[in-house]
Structure formats: structure tokens, C-alpha cells
Design a protein around this nucleic acid. Structure first.
Lengths: 335, 335
DNA sequence: ATAAGCAATGCAAACGTTTGCATTGCTAAA
DNA sequence: TTTAGCAATGCAAACGTTTGCATTGCTTAT
């Protein structure tokens, strides 16, 4: 059994409340007793019981982090862990702990329980775990939460953090143009998701800014890419570079290019979203639009903590800047 | 403010203790009052306050999970997240929550705090986060913990879970031999780490079992691999397949093989540890020794929960079987 | 008919804190 | 010299549970 505040009080000969006040610095205490109490705490190896503390002051000093267990995509998970670390670090510096909980679409009870049993003071959850029911529950209870990823609905009313996909996309175009490519094509997975639509928007805007007419955006498919490459080889299409919306696409594009014996970067440039670890080991080393997932987690945590403390009343969103990491796959022009 | 046990008691007209007993099923209660209480709990949307509960019965129903924040290796992190999900799932089914905490070698205070403030009933930690000081602290406090990865020291006295590296290595050899390769070479990163030594052991044993004389194990380096390939081409060395101890090695080997125009799998077979997501998109698709990281997490959690409940007194270790996923890079013989 | 036993429930303390409201001296202003 | 004010501390209630020890009434064996 570890020492309690009462043990300290007894040892020093004061009231437990005095000890509490020393610990929390919540009232003026004479230098003398403060000394003695601190001494006693060290000697008895005292550590405050966080449960008791939470019980009385109504907050747990813990935030919940929802993990999308349904997401078997090891790619996004690899990024995610950096966010997790960042969240924990940010939380810790403010004295908060992080409780995790899985979430699968079939069952959002975990999250509900978290909110209802008041085990945490607020939660961070990925956008794909957000349901209307959940939003209602949380807003009704004035329960603070931050969404990772831009929500489709009610985005004005909730806190969220996301990568600046539009800016990232513009950067990618800019990178290609600076390397003397003239006509990039954007390859996406699914035009309807919100992040893809942002990337498309950014792509089109930057193309326009660079004076490229009718920029071409396509949903990726292996047959389609073969077609494109044939057209390029036959001179019917003047695409000279690809921006891939994720690593798998990039990998398949690279494969198709090799099969057609098109040289990267000399004939065709390739840049991709998602700075996946293997990208730099590829042949050629892939240029990427890199997202600082650490910063994303950190920002989410900071936002949540502000919301919890009440410093940030109005819903707020933040975009994390994307950066280009130039590697071999876009080095048309030697510098 | 949410409803408390007292509110329920008042609503039904019984003592709080009766409500508590209904909730916990800890005494015989008349059918009638049980009904009424359950009814009232639903109507008032009652959820027990876990803090108060923990305070009185001395356990938090929470386990701690240590994340190695120092580990920038996105590769291992990608695997790790599966373990995290497994741990949370296993914990949850037993009514436990999971609290995470970062750990960097520079500062093991996080873990110490976790133990000392009794925020959790036990912890799971990666082997690289284990220090002697920590072990002492935890064993002195009879604080249950499970290590992920085989420890070097005191392994008889502590709970741990690891991949069966020896068996995985044997499987890899077996896979190659079954595919009609005759002389595999094992390429490792660092012969001294415990898991590498297990792999070496398994490799040597299985080679012996297959009648392969003086099996060759080497620390990987890019120059070295080039040498080997030259020797193979010149007929001075009869290695016909490689077992790589991780993905990066595999990737570099593949690259070197391509540069020398050696055909995989026809001239040389390649199999690697770590089933990294891109492996199946490689050219050729890489055969791998796959580890069920989900199961590893699950096992760790189950072990910890047993230790916490006192069902498992004596330290115990468990090895998770590795499985071969055969893809193109080892298909010498068509089936 | 009586005692013993048991089912159903109440009472109150306990878990380890925090905190509003005293209380006690003491200092400084009037 | 009185009084207001303040620094330093004590007292006890409160946070929401659980649980050992009553208590009450009823059943059943003697």
C-alpha cells in the first residue's frame, strides 16, 4: 500500500488539507510547513492518487483516442502511429493521459461508453468513425471532441484538423513545373471522397495558375494507365508526368512505365502523396508530397485541450501544410 | 450532470447499496426491485462512474501500453498498430481499458508515473523500453507486466511474448527447399540482437535437417551482396536463394539482383521476414515469413490480464508461430 | 410453538482527494 | 486602542461507489 495524503499529514502533524494545498499550490502556506511536507512526501515516496483527485474535481485529465480498427490499411496505419505519439506527447506536457479505444462501424458503443462513463474529458477521433448519432450525443453533452480529417457534415460546428490537401496538390504541380515538366496528370482513387476532391481542386487551380489548359484528372485503373501510356508513346497525348494520390497507385504506375520502357524521370515524372517509408528505396526514389503526421496529431491534441479548458469556445479547424520531398522520380532538369 | 446511483435509489425508493448490488449482481435481490431499478437506470440514462468504482475497489480496470516513441522506424510501427488494436480488443472484452504512454530512453519517468500513481493495473511494454531500474520497480511493487519481445535478462522471471523467430527461420528454409532451391543464404542486420540470433539458430538447424552443409549466414551490406552475386555468376559460390531478415534488406537484394540481371525466382529465390504491405506489390511479389502481430498483441493482453487477476502466478512466456506466405519470388518449381 | 436459517434490504464507513467555511493570531490602518 | 484585513491552517462535507454488519420478516425443521 502506498502512502496517502493522510499519512503525510500525520507524519508532519498537520491537516490533510494543508498537504493538499502544498501539492496544488492553492493557498499560501508558511515556508516552514511547506518544507516539512515536501520532505515527508519524498521520504514516504508519496504519489497522489489520480482517481481520488479526479473523482472530486470532476475531470479525469485523460483524453480518449479512437482507433479505426476496421481500417486494415497498414499504409495509413503506419502514418497514424506518428499521430498517436504526438497526441500522447502533447497531452502529457499538459498533464493529460491518453486512453485508446477501438472503433468499428458495426459497433460505436465503445465511444459512447467513453463519453457516458466520463472516463475521459474529451476525444480525438478519425473522421471515418464519426456518425451522426455520435455527434448528437457529444454535442448534446457538451463533450469536447476533435476530428482528424475534414468532415463532410456540420464542418462549421465542430473542431477538426486535416492535411491541407489542396495546398499539397498545388505544391506537387509546382514541383513538376519547376522541374520543367509541362503537362501533369492527376491520378486519384475515388473522386468523391472529400480529400480527393480537395486534391483535384488544388491541382486544377495550380494548373490554371501555371497556364496549363484543361488539366486532366482521372480515376486510376490498371487498364486505363496502359491506355494512357500507349497514347503517350503514339504521341496522341502530351502528358509528361503523373501525380499519384497514394502509394499503391504510384507503385502500379511505376510498374506500368517499366513495362512500356518509359524512363522515369527523363520521359515521365512521377510524384505521389503519402510519404511511405519504402518510397525512398524505390527505383527511382520517389518524390512525394509529405504530410507531417506528427504535427497533425499534435495540433489535434492542442486543439482538444483548449476546447476542454474552455479557452476555445467556438469550433475551429486547422490545416496542416504539406511539403514536397524531391527525390529522383521528378529530376528532369539537373540542377 | 449525469445520474448517480443515489438518484436511482431515490427514484425507486431503496438504498443506494441495493442499486449497487443489482448492478454488480453481488447479492440476491427480489425480482420486483431488480425490475424497478433496471427500469429507473434506463430512464435516467444511468452509467456507473468508473472513477468512484475504482477508488473503492482499488483497481482501475485499465492497462498501460508503452509505445516506443524513439522508434522512428515506420516499418515496425506499421506492424505495431495491429498489436495495439488486438490489445485494446482483448482488454475490452474483459472490461479493461487501455492507456498509452510514450517512452524514450532519455526519460522513463512516464512509465514510473504510471506505476506509482496506480493509474493502471498492469502494463505491456516493448522489450527495448525495459531497463533494469524499471524491472526492479515493478517487481518490488508486485506490479504485473508483460514484455513484447524476448528479453535478454531475467527471462525466466518475467512474462513475455515474442515471435517464434527460430521456427520462422526454419520455415523459410523449408519453403525454399520445397521449391527446389538447394542452398539458401541468410542475410541479417546485426548478429547480436536476440531475435537475429534465434533466426540464425533456426536457419542452421533446418539446414542441418535438410542435409545442407556449412550453411552460410552473413551480415548484410550493399558491397557484400554485390560480391556474392559476382561469385554466383562466376560459379564460385553455389548460393541459389536468400532469406532476408527484413524488408529493407530484401529490397536492396532485389535491386542488386536486377542490376546483375539475375532472374528471380528462376535463378535466385528470395524470401524475407516482415510482411510489409508493399511486399505483394513488388516485382516479383515477395514471399514472406509472416508474423501475426494481431495475435501477438492479443496474447500479451491475455497474459497480462491473467497476471493481474492472479490466475497466472509464475512468469510465463509465449511464442507466436510464424507462417510462410508464398508469392512469386520463391516459385522455382511450378506446381 | 419455537428456534434456526435465509432472503432481502438498510446503514454507515471507507476509498483518497479537494474545498468552502471557519478559526486563530498577527499586522497595519484609523 | 480598537478594528479591519490577511496569512496560515483546521474542520468537515463532498465526489460516487462498494461492502461488512445489522435488521427485518418469512420459511422450515424440530
Amino acid at each position: 500500500m502506498s502512502a496517502t495524503i493522510k499519512d503525510i499529514a500525520k507524519a508532519v502533524g498537520v491537516n490533510p488539507s494543508t498537504v493538499s494545498r502544498v501539492i496544488n499550490g492553492t493557498a499560501s502556506i508558511s515556508e516552514e510547513t511547506r518544507e516539512k511536507i515536501n520532505q515527508a512526501m519524498k521520504e514516504l515516496d508519496y504519489h497522489p492518487n489520480s482517481l481520488a483527485r479526479s473523482l472530486v474535481n470532476g475531470s479525469t485529465f485523460t483524453i480518449g483516442l479512437v482507433i479505426d480498427a476496421g481500417n486494415k490499411d497498414a499504409f495509413s496505419n503506419a502514418f497514424f502511429i506518428q499521430s498517436v505519439i504526438a497526441i500522447e506527447t502533447a497531452a502529457q506536457t499538459k498533464g493529460y493521459s491518453v486512453l485508446i479505444t477501438n472503433h468499428s462501424l458495426s459497433d460505436s458503443n465503445n465511444i459512447k461508453t467513453l463519453v457516458q462513463e466520463r472516463k475521459v474529458d474529451g476525444i480525438i477521433l478519425p473522421v471515418q468513425c464519426m456518425t451522426d448519432e455520435l455527434i448528437c450525443l457529444m454535442t448534446a453533452n457538451k463533450f469536447p471532441f476533435v476530428v482528424m480529417g475534414e468532415p463532410q457534415l456540420k464542418k462549421e460546428e465542430i473542431f477538426w484538423v486535416d492535411v491541407d490537401n489542396e495546398q499539397g496538390s498545388r505544391q506537387a504541380v509546382d514541383c513538376l513545373i519547376r522541374s520543367a515538366y509541362r503537362r501533369p496528370m492527376l491520378l486519384v482513387e475515388d473522386k468523391k471522397t472529400i480529400f480527393e476532391s480537395k486534391r483535384i481542386k488544388g491541382f486544377e487551380r495550380e494548373c490554371e495558375a501555371k497556364g496549363i489548359q484543361s488539366p486532366s484528372v482521372h480515376a486510376f485503373s490498371e487498364e486505363r494507365i496502359d491506355e494512357f501510356l500507349n497514347e503517350i508513346l503514339e504521341g496522341k497525348r502530351d502528358t509528361d508526368s503523373f501525380i499519384c494520390s497514394n502509394n499503391i497507385i504510384a507503385y502500379k504506375v511505376l510498374k506500368a512505365l517499366k513495362a512500356k520502357k518509359l524512363d522515369v524521370p527523363r520521359q515521365i515524372g512521377v510524384i505521389t502523396f503519402d510519404n511511405y517509408p519504402l518510397a525512398e528505396y524505390m527505383e527511382p526514389a520517389l518524390s512525394v508530397v509529405d504530410v507531417d503526421t506528427y504535427k497533425m496529431g499534435e495540433t489535434a491534441a492542442e486543439l482538444l485541450l483548449k476546447a476542454i479548458s474552455g479557452k476555445e469556445k467556438k469550433a475551429k479547424s486547422q490545416l496542416i501544410e504539406a511539403k514536397i520531398i524531391e527525390r529522383d522520380s521528378t529530376r528532369l532538369k539537373q540542377k
